[in-house]
Amino acid sequence: MARRTRVIGRAAATTLLVAGLGLFPASALADSPPGSLTVQAEPAPASGGQAGTWTLEARLTDAGNHPLNGQTVEFLLGVDFLGIHQVVVASAVTDASGTATTAYRPTSSSEQSLVARAVDSGITSLPVDLGVRGVPTVVAPTNQLGLVSALAGPGAIGLALVVWALLAGALLSVLRVIAWPRRLVWPAHRAGQAVGELLE
């Protein structure tokens, strides 16, 4: 018990030391320059419904509401996977009007909720909810043998039963013709009578 406390104490000390150092660069990023980023999503025309391809548009402006050209914008999808809450699903570069456009096909099975993030400045947009779940791209193949594999099991069992029936039939038919010695039959006969009397 003391040993465990000692080691956890060590762990805590080390944690505090490195966490303090580690937070420093993260906190430095929190002060982002002013600006705004908005994102909207539209299902692409004739895309096969809402689970098909969408068009994502992110508009990036600076503090003075001037569009920013040539900035890389990443689109992040909200996920829930082993402590990961966001993953980059697309990225695009803003044009002269400050708009970054990309096509996006939902493949994650979670509710599609996207944010845009300007890579350089770090500002993020409000999330846009597509209102659909994605369709995972992997498809399981069908069993091509179908009926054959379905019949194989019962067929084998049936065959085994037929063989057993033949073996039993051969043995029993011999035993039937070769009568049991009366000595063995008689006790069984008596036992049967006794059971009958009991039941009365």
Binding site: V88, S108, P136
Partner: peptide, 20 residues
């Protein structure tokens, strides 16, 4: 390690990717 349904994968150095 990844999830084909969630379409995301992550490694041990903090990187996460869209699996497909």
């Amino acid at each position: 390690i990844g999830d084909l349904n969630e379409d995301v994968a992550a490694n041990g150095v903090g990187e996460s990717v869209r699996l497909s």
